[in-house]
Design a protein around this nucleic acid. Structure first.
Lengths: 209, 209
DNA sequence: ACTAATAGTACGATCGTTCGTACACTTTGC
DNA sequence: GCAAAGTGTACGAACGATCGTACTATTAGT
């Protein structure tokens, strides 16, 4: 059959693959990408170890696939809704607030997947680190672009540096994630929201006239 | 001999113990506290595995001792110099700028030890996570206190919320650390410095009169 | 029959941990 | 002063478990 859609075997394979990756992303968000183990995944999902292994061929490939899966989940949870907003400051708000909701709502049990995984894999060299760096770069670029658009629309002052503003907003969000995960401090999200609000209004054009 | 100082055995033991912990902190700052392995430490330091093990009795105890050692290094690098400054906004600046220098200068090869180690150990339960949480709490409290003092001195407006301001300053610092470690982005420290400067001057009393 | 997904088995390596032991040093009793 | 007893550090070997990976069946869908 030419149409791969209707091969039940492949469908079954895709389904278990998805299950593996969803579980892998959850585990990694708590224990890091090195906390992943093929044997443990197999036990958790009641699959044979070799069955899990066959899907990826190596642990590094499993880690990379996990990063891709987590990226997709993140995109669906944060990026897509924000891109549905109109460009400009509304989208900037949607991105940051969506991120905060994504972290607070524990889309991954360990909070933000990338924040959890960066420590422990972010300082090493190799394809895993590169993939993480690229995911980070894409997110930053998205935020910078959104800010730049808002400035073009006159919603931020001309003296606003998009990269700088994006850096600060992202910093607030990540700080809230860390505080929540490590200290169970739910107020951190309120602090972050407040900081974001104030920072955005501070960047509004001619606030003093 | 009553004076315990002169027991050559203990001195030797302390010296190797320090060497183990220094190396352990460096490794953990790159690979996380789970990346620590007794066997690897032994190999790196040309000590027997059991020799390393004997110093701690369990891996968890090694991890806890590593956290304590890293805390001491951090305190010496960041806290002590800042506490030597006069209380108030100068000390606030010294704390944050000292932290940035500590991160940029790679006192630990993986950047900030605690940032690196929190992902992967921060979301789990147990004594290791508790120790990390406590270290974080102490640092935050230090920063909040410094801000509160500055406000008492009239260096920040009365409407300044110390916890909020501390949260934001700390967020900038950590964001710079992450960007530097993950993307090799040295400009992040400049962004963070700028953000800190602006945020502090925004909190200065009556800036618009 | 052919193919794709999964299972089964086994491998070498490394993990944390537990032994018994050797050596260096200190303290004690004579 | 000097040997005996005690203490602390480090060693080497071995343990059971788990790791990633490599094979060869087996099962199920086309």
């Amino acid at each position: 059959m030419i149409d791969g859609q209707s091969d039940g075997r492949v469908q079954r394979g895709d389904s278990t693959r998805r299950a593996i990756l969803r579980r892998a992303a959850d585990i990694a968000s708590v224990e890091g990408l090195d906390g992943l183990s093929i044997g443990r995944l197999a036990t958790d999902l009641a699959i044979s170890k070799s069955g899990v292994f066959a899907h990826f061929g190596s642990k590094e490939e499993l880690q990379l696939a996990t990063i891709r899966a987590a990226t997709a989940i993140f995109t669906e949870a944060v990026v897509d809704p924000a891109m549905a907003e109109q460009a400009g400051v509304r989208r900037v708000r949607a991105l940051v607030n969506g991120w905060l909701k994504y972290s607070a709502g524990r889309v991954f049990p360990g909070g933000c997947f990338f924040a959890a995984v960066t420590g422990g894999s972010g300082a090493r060299e190799g394809r895993v680190r590169d993939a993480l760096a690229e995911a980070g770069t894409r997110w930053t670029a998205l935020l910078v672009t959104a800010v730049a658009e808002a400035r073009e629309f006159g919603q931020f002052g001309q003296d606003t540096d998009p990269a700088q503003l994006a850096f600060e907003l992202d910093a607030f969000a990540h700080a809230a994630n860390t505080a929540s995960v490590l200290h169970g401090d739910g107020d951190a999200y309120i602090k972050a929201s407040l900081a974001v609000m104030n920072r955005i209004s501070a960047a509004s054009p001619s606030p003093l006239i």
